[in-house]
Design a protein around this nucleic acid. Sequence first.
DNA 1: ACTCAACTGGAACATGCATTTCAGTTACCG
DNA 2: CGGTAACTGAAATGCATGTTCCAGTTGAGT
Lengths: 190, 190
Amino acid sequence: MSTPAEGGRRADAVRNRRLALDAATALLAEPGSPLTVEAIARRAGLGAATVVRAFGGKDALLDAAVSGLLEPVVHRAGRLLEQDDQAQALRTFLTELIAFQSAHHAIGDQLDGLTLPATTALRDELVRVVREMIVGAQRDGTVRTDLDPAVTTALIGRTAYAVARSQPASPELTDAYLTVLMDGLRSPNG
Amino acid sequence: MSTPAEGGRRADAVRNRRLALDAATALLAEPGSPLTVEAIARRAGLGAATVVRAFGGKDALLDAAVSGLLEPVVHRAGRLLEQDDQAQALRTFLTELIAFQSAHHAIGDQLDGLTLPATTALRDELVRVVREMIVGAQRDGTVRTDLDPAVTTALIGRTAYAVARSQPASPELTDAYLTVLMDGLRSPNG
DNA sequence: ACTCAACTGGAACATGCATTTCAGTTACCG
DNA sequence: CGGTAACTGAAATGCATGTTCCAGTTGAGT
């Protein structure tokens, strides 16, 4: 669909494509892993050339792996949007997002300057959902209205990412972040 | 003193050392610059070998350049510590720190995983000063006491860095960050 | 079974980088 | 001035990585 589809491929090619994807996904969860084509190939039990060809390049492989991990997170965020208390939904979502990013440490680590179409689309969708949460919470009166929702969303995105990158992952830091953020987002005279 | 000192060096060696340092410093302020030895050498009007040898390696050169930029920032933070209102001192310092990091974009960009002795020492000093500001503000009653100062310091360090990395530098984002942070750090029932 | 296009992977290649080499140059001391 | 050790920088080296080549292998249609 997005990347070379399963069309008239041979069975071994399909299987190796899956192996490469699984290996890349596994390495994304291991901090300090090289995340090179060589490492992915070794993990998958394949040659480097096969790994590269399966997706048409390393970037496309990483795009598939990262977006595969990100998709359930985005889906979960959409579900939280249906909740009554949008401020609480935002807090819950951020907690889960930070846990997710901590678990898949290399996602933000190695992929900073790349252009990955599927991943970018999911990230945009995530931004959209978070902004809706903020707007909803403003409507509820639980989040201050003197800040532009778009700016607030950018603020949350950047800082949450930074907190998740703490090494090693620190529950106290995450707690402090959520506490300060949510209190700071409350109406100033409330 | 730290790196090969001026000892019995020839005049041209001393001059080229300075040229290399200035070139590296200049490149740290230019977003998107390669920051390679080649680029530094071209900027300095020297050969790559000369640039490398002047400091005994690229890392040592960057350490000298970054710590040279960071030193006045640390000094300024120490001066702010003498101010009466520590919460205000913290806010002022963060404003300046973010501006500084935005101006020298590449500092955090390219130097994430390196071990630079002088730079690390200055950063530790900076952390120490910020923690003192927080403790002082807690004593003043302007910052909540239900958070560990060390954790709060880590939180501020990570998030300020993330905000400064926004591309392009956005005054609204910095404003929103400082507003939310300082309000969130106030006593919850105040 | 037979065929052959698709597929594989080790090896060669390409790229971008820091560092070292070394023949030539130059600052500095006497 | 010379002599010489320090210094210079273009080129060579080393290294890590992604990508491509190609001779051999294999899945799948007949």
